[in-house]
Design a protein around this nucleic acid. Structure first.
Length: 572
DNA sequence: GCCGTTTTCGGCCCGACTGTTTTCAGTCG
């Protein structure tokens, strides 16, 4: 197991950028580290490989100085530059930058005039009036800071699913190499494919008593020691500052232990009640029928003993799923089209041809390119001239027999009045259009709902992108009446996106049933900005499965012609 | 710090909103 993988390296580079920024360093040097972080994040495959074969050294935005930092991080898990910066600038200031509304300038003012170095001190100052009294601060800023700190405190207990999954997978591999471990299963929220994860839980089958396994835990790579243990469970502290629960079971009740470790609590309660109604007792780590021990070596044997079909972990949430028929849930292989990605024409890192090659290798039969529109100036949104150049390029790629069909799309900003970002004669030239809100998040709920609903009435509108604008653990959704959005989308025959970027996962799986009941078609979009982003589809599929979606509910399970028919159906 | 040459250093993304002011600095996407 490598000491640190690309998300860890990217995070370290971002931190270096923040520290340099707070120190008042040249802003272009700061930006160099930020872009390098994004480049690293976009590397497909192991970072050590990209270092060894020289491809990282050749990547845009990676020069000799940053390459040296990355090499040090990959080889030792540390960076001298970062260590020096940490000694120089209080780390609490970096945390303050995550509060929406606080940037480098304001954090520096807070530090220099009030001598504040931690979030806790900042919270006190925001409460007692000292913060509001600073120049160009005010009562509203103080309130926002208090809200921001509360949000951060809550968010700090959670990790995004892709980080948690990386962590769980690496740990599971290491545990698989411990002597006498017979099988390793990832359980908990990661297995249920929750969008955020509080605790990594792993179940081990061993042919020796648990304490013999536990003796090896502290010496695993990335482990920082044991936080606590009983006769069958241990909590392992990890270098990343997180913890993982390790549960050891003999093989004869693996099924019950795995189900218990997977949760959710509501599902287990419903399962236990169902067991009781059938004369069983589901208690702790085993299933009993009266005083007879019922072996459950697999989860299937547990569910079947209770007269139930095996329930996929993604569906084990409210408890209402117990006793219901299990649908054949969407699988990654059902998706024919890859939608929503950005190229170098706006803020993506790769070309049309590069994305086409990766999507083809992933088994897609068509790919919809959707760069930003011109209102998204910060992201290099496309001017009409760029659009024509890109169309020519797409035509050329299609003419070169790439083994995949490339469609001309756009992610058009939904402007504040609900209009799209180009006149109809330009919109008409695209094969399909994703409409998204990227500005003016602070409208009232009614105004935002009107804005989005009005946009969907355009005959060129195909898919509503990331419908609530949330960024998991960092930004709340903007207020919007989703029921009304669903109603209008169904009426206008517009699809709504599940954005598969693990920072978004928007729509939320909890509202998918309502969307389907309203008659809304769902589209899975990756929002890829680089080649690694193509594999984010797995998180979107997780959301779709949690929402109980089957393949006929998903627009890009259709072939290219079927997809285009949907997109063209409302055009004049 | 990186890039792209004009092979040695100048240029690098910006428009609009927010909260503070009463003209604009700072933040955001």
């Amino acid at each position: 197991m490598p000491v640190i993988e690309r998300t860890g390296v990217a995070r370290a580079l971002e931190q270096i950028a923040s520290y340099l920024d707070l120190k008042g360093e040249n802003s272009f040097r700061v930006r160099a580290f930020t872009t390098a972080a994004r480049t690293v994040e976009g590397v497909s495959g192991p970072l050590a490989e990209a270092l060894a074969d020289g491809s990282l050294a050749k990547a845009k935005g990676i020069g000799p100085a940053i390459l040296e930092v990355i090499t040090e991080l990959v080889e030792s898990g540390r960076a001298t530059l970062l260590d020096e910066l940490r000694a120089d600038v209080p780390p609490g200031l970096i945390e303050m930058l995550d509060i929406s509304g606080l940037g480098v300038a304001k954090v520096r003012t807070i530090h220099q005039t009030l001598g504040i170095t931690t979030l806790a001190e900042l919270e006190v100052a925001a409460g007692d009036g000292r913060l509001a009294a600073l120049p160009r601060f005010g009562e509203r800023t103080a309130q926002n800071v208090l809200k921001g700190i509360a949000f951060l405190r809550e968010a700090s207990q959670w990790r995004l699913v892709h980080h948690a999954t990386d962590e769980a997978t690496a740990l599971a591999e290491a545990l698989g190499r411990v002597p006498h471990v017979v099988a390793v299963h990832i359980a908990g929220e990661v297995r249920r494919r929750m969008e955020t994860v509080r605790e990594v839980i792993i179940v081990l089958v061993a042919d020796v008593p648990p304490e013999e396994i536990f003796r090896h835990l502290a010496s695993l790579p990335g482990a920082r020691g044991i936080a606590g243990q009983d006769e069958r469970r241990a909590t392992l502290r990890l270098a990343a500052g997180t913890a993982a629960q390790i549960i050891v079971t003999p093989p004869q009740n693996l099924g019950t232990v795995l189900a218990q470790a997977t949760g959710s609590d509501a599902h287990l309660n419903a399962l236990a009640a169902h067991a009781t109604s059938r004369g069983f007792t589901l208690a702790g780590t085993a299933l009993w029928e009266g005083s007879r021990f019922v072996p459950t070596p697999t989860e299937e044997s547990l569910y079947h003993a209770l007269g139930l079909p095996w329930i996929p972990p993604e569906l084990r949430e409210s408890g209402a799923e117990v006793g219901m028929p299990v649908p054949r849930l969407l699988e990654r292989g059902d998706l024919r089209g890859f939608l929503h990605c950005h190229t170098t024409y706006s803020d993506g890192n790769n070309s049309v041809a590069e994305l086409a090659a990766v999507c083809r290798a992933d088994g897609y039969s068509y790919l919809g390119i959707t760069d930003h529109s011109r209102a998204a100036a910060y992201a290099g949104g496309m001017q009409p001239d760029d659009i024509r150049r890109q169309w020519d390029e797409i035509d050329a790629v299609n003419a070169s027999n790439p083994g995949i069909r490339v469609l001309k799309g756009i992610e058009s900003d939904i402007l504040v009045d609900g209009s799209l970002d180009y006149p109809d004669d330009i919109l008409a030239g695209f094969d399909f259009i994703i409409g998204s809100v990227h500005s003016r998040f602070t409208l009232s709920r009614d105004e935002m709902t009107d804005r989005v609903c009005r946009a969907m009435t355009s005959p060129y509108f195909t898919i509503l992108g990331h419908p609530t604008g949330r960024l998991l653990l960092s930004r709340e959704a903007y207020p919007i009446d989703l029921d009304r959005v669903f109603e209008v989308a169904a009426r206008e025959k517009v699809a709504i996106e599940i954005n598969a970027d693990p920072h978004r996962l928007d729509l939320d799986w909890r509202v998918l049933a309502a969307a389907r009941a309203a008659g809304v078609m769902i589209s899975l979009g990756c929002d890829a900005h680089n080649l690694a982003g193509v594999s984010n589809m797995t998180w979107g599929v997780g959301v779709a499965r949690k929402g109980g979606l089957t393949r006929d509910a998903v627009l890009n399970c259709r072939d290219a012609e079927g997809f285009l028919r949907f997109a063209r159906a409302r055009r004049p």
